[in-house]
């Protein structure tokens, strides 16, 4: 379970201080498929970054399964991310010189997984995301949707507790975006992985089992649906 209590985050832009998050309280239970929505500048990405331990908050606390991750130092956060979190980015952020297989398997490499297991798990997850037969293609030989599938495979191959996705369909056409969402949803059900993704696309919001709407750094609404 993710517990977010009174989280505030301010940024300085020149002389101006921007209050990105103004006291967020939120609880996310295991296996949720949660969408954080809101207009640009509402604090979606900041909230994702804080949950993902890649940013530091100014006030409040975030705990994941009782672990106060927001209090961790830089090295502890790195280790925590490596072992527990998966990320999907809007622009895929694949390594262009590596094949699909290598882009996914490197996550297991840095976890120290042995070659045989690494290979087996990578092939399996690539098959699950629909990239069987394309394992040895480089990203530039794949479509945007296929690249995002690699990114999903990369996020899931280590079977993390939580996958954080920042606008995962923003760079895709609506049909491909929907396919990606269906895939994410399917993975959510298969592995009971908590998915938290940011979006400002209504179609994407429709897929979420819970929709948290942010406005000017505050939660404007929190809706659960089935």
């Amino acid at each position: 379970m993710i517990k977010i209590e009174g989280v505030r985050r301010n940024y300085k832009t020149g002389e101006t201080e921007v209050k990105a998050l103004r006291g967020i309280d939120l609880e996310v239970t295991d296996g949720e498929f949660l969408s954080i929505a809101g207009p640009s500048g509402s604090g979606k990405t900041t909230l994702l970054n804080l949950i993902g331990c890649i940013d530091s908050l100014d006030d409040g606390e975030i705990t994941i399964d009782g672990v106060p991750v927001s209090r961790m130092d830089r090295h502890a956060k790195t280790t925590y991310r490596r072992e527990n979190l998966g990320f999907i980015f809007q622009t895929y952020n694949l390594i262009p010189v590596l094949t699909a297989f290598e882009n996914v398997s490197f996550v297991l490499s840095i976890l120290g997984v042995g070659q045989e297991e690494l290979s087996e798990r990578t092939y399996r997850i690539l098959k699950e995301v629909g990239l069987e037969g394309m394992e040895h293609r480089r990203p530039d030989k794949l479509s945007g949707g296929q690249q995002q599938r690699i990114a999903i495979a990369r996020a899931l191959v280590k079977q993390p507790k939580i996958v954080l996705a920042d606008e995962p369909t923003a760079n895709l056409d609506s049909k491909t975006g929907e396919e990606i969402l269906q895939l994410m949803k399917q993975m959510n059900r298969t592995y009971n992985t908590t998915f938290i993704f940011s979006t400002h696309d209504k179609m994407v919001m429709e897929y979420a089992s819970r929709l948290v709407l942010l406005h000017d750094g505050e939660i404007a609404s929190d809706t659960r649906r089935e």
């Binding site: 993902g52 790195t78 991310r81 490596r82 952020n93 996550v107």
Partner: peptide, 16 residues
């Protein structure tokens, strides 16, 4: 830089 950000997000050590 973005690639670096991605690798660091996924928990790759700075030393690596």
């Amino acid at each position: 830089t973005r690639e670096l950000g991605m690798m660091r997000s996924l928990g790759m050590k700075d030393s690596s």
